[in-house]
Amino acid sequence: TDCSIVSFLARLGCSSCLDYFTTQGLTTIYQIEHYSMDDLASLKIPEQFRHAIWKGILDHRQLHEF
């Protein structure tokens, strides 16, 4: 599957948040998979999107835990 942040955000309906990640040089889900809610806040992601992205990260982690 596509591991880009572009497609990750698109699946979550949060494509408008892409610039918050790319300006930090973040391009793949693996770069953010251990981010906390505070990390997302420090990227200045608007609160209404933060929870959806956080949930997406948690779902991603569960899929990749062996």
Rank of each mutant, 00 (worst) to 15 (best):
T1E: 12
T1G: 12
T1P: 02
T1S: 10
D2M: 05
D2N: 09
C3W: 07
C3Q: 11
C3S: 13
C3L: 11
C3R: 09
C3F: 13
C3A: 06
C3E: 10
C3H: 07
C3D: 10
S4W: 04
S4G: 06
S4A: 03
S4E: 08
I5L: 14
I5S: 01
I5F: 03
V6Y: 06
V6Q: 14
V6M: 13
V6G: 11
S7I: 04
S7P: 06
S7G: 10
S7N: 14
S7C: 12
S7Y: 09
F8T: 02
F8E: 01
F8M: 11
L9M: 03
L9Y: 01
L9S: 01
L9K: 00
L9A: 00
L9P: 00
L9Q: 00
A10V: 05
A10R: 08
A10F: 04
R11P: 05
R11L: 04
R11Y: 04
R11M: 06
L12W: 08
L12Y: 10
L12M: 10
L12C: 07
L12D: 01
L12R: 06
G13M: 04
G13S: 08
G13R: 07
G13F: 02
C14D: 02
C14Q: 04
C14H: 05
C14L: 15
C14R: 04
C14A: 13
S15G: 09
S15K: 11
S15D: 08
S15Q: 15
S16W: 04
S16Q: 09
S16C: 15
S16H: 09
C17M: 12
C17A: 08
C17K: 02
C17Q: 05
C17N: 03
C17T: 07
C17I: 05
C17V: 08
L18R: 08
L18V: 13
L18T: 14
L18M: 14
D19P: 15
D19T: 14
D19S: 15
D19E: 13
Y20S: 09
Y20G: 03
Y20F: 13
Y20E: 05
Y20A: 12
Y20L: 10
Y20W: 06
F21L: 02
F21A: 00
F21I: 01
F21G: 00
F21M: 02
F21Y: 01
F21E: 00
T22N: 08
T22F: 06
T22E: 13
T22D: 11
T22C: 04
T22H: 10
T23R: 12
T23Q: 14
T23M: 14
T23G: 14
Q24F: 05
Q24M: 08
Q24Y: 05
Q24E: 10
G25T: 03
G25I: 00
G25S: 09
G25L: 02
L26E: 02
L26W: 02
L26A: 03
L26V: 09
T27Y: 07
T27H: 14
T27Q: 10
T28S: 11
T28K: 11
T28W: 10
I29H: 02
I29P: 03
I29C: 10
I29V: 13
Y30P: 15
Y30T: 14
Y30H: 15
Q31C: 05
Q31Y: 01
Q31S: 07
I32G: 01
I32K: 01
I32P: 00
I32F: 04
I32E: 00
I32T: 02
I32R: 00
E33V: 13
E33I: 05
E33T: 10
E33Q: 15
H34R: 12
H34T: 07
H34F: 06
H34N: 15
H34Y: 07
Y35D: 01
Y35N: 03
Y35P: 00
Y35G: 02
Y35M: 15
S36L: 04
S36F: 03
S36R: 08
S36H: 05
S36K: 09
M37K: 11
M37G: 04
M37P: 13
M37L: 13
M37Q: 08
D38I: 08
D38W: 07
D38G: 12
D38N: 08
D38M: 15
D39F: 02
D39V: 03
D39A: 06
D39G: 04
D39M: 07
D39E: 10
L40C: 02
L40Q: 01
L40V: 05
L40A: 00
L40N: 01
L40P: 01
A41H: 07
A41Q: 14
A41R: 11
A41L: 09
A41P: 01
A41D: 11
S42G: 15
S42C: 09
S42R: 15
S42E: 15
S42P: 04
L43D: 02
L43M: 06
L43F: 04
L43C: 04
K44F: 07
K44D: 13
K44S: 13
K44V: 04
K44I: 03
K44R: 13
I45W: 00
I45Q: 00
I45F: 03
I45A: 01
I45K: 01
I45C: 03
P46T: 02
P46W: 00
E47Y: 14
E47H: 08
E47C: 08
E47W: 07
Q48S: 11
Q48F: 06
Q48P: 14
Q48E: 15
Q48A: 12
Q48V: 12
Q48Y: 07
F49H: 14
F49W: 09
F49M: 13
F49L: 09
F49Y: 14
R50A: 07
R50E: 05
R50L: 11
R50D: 01
H51N: 15
H51C: 11
H51Y: 08
H51R: 11
H51E: 15
H51T: 14
H51Q: 15
H51P: 11
A52N: 07
A52R: 14
A52E: 12
A52H: 08
I53A: 00
I53H: 01
I53K: 03
I53N: 01
W54L: 15
W54V: 07
W54Y: 14
K55Q: 11
K55A: 08
K55N: 11
G56K: 02
G56H: 03
I57G: 01
I57T: 03
I57K: 02
L58D: 13
L58V: 14
L58M: 09
D59T: 06
D59L: 08
H60M: 13
H60V: 14
H60C: 14
H60L: 13
H60D: 05
H60T: 12
H60A: 13
H60N: 13
R61W: 06
R61H: 06
R61T: 09
R61M: 08
R61P: 12
Q62R: 15
Q62D: 11
Q62C: 10
Q62W: 05
L63C: 14
L63Y: 11
L63H: 15
L63Q: 13
L63I: 11
L63D: 15
H64P: 12
H64C: 09
H64S: 15
H64R: 13
H64N: 14
H64M: 14
E65T: 10
E65K: 14
E65M: 07
E65G: 15
E65V: 07
E65W: 06
E65I: 06
F66M: 15
F66Y: 15
F66R: 13
F66H: 15
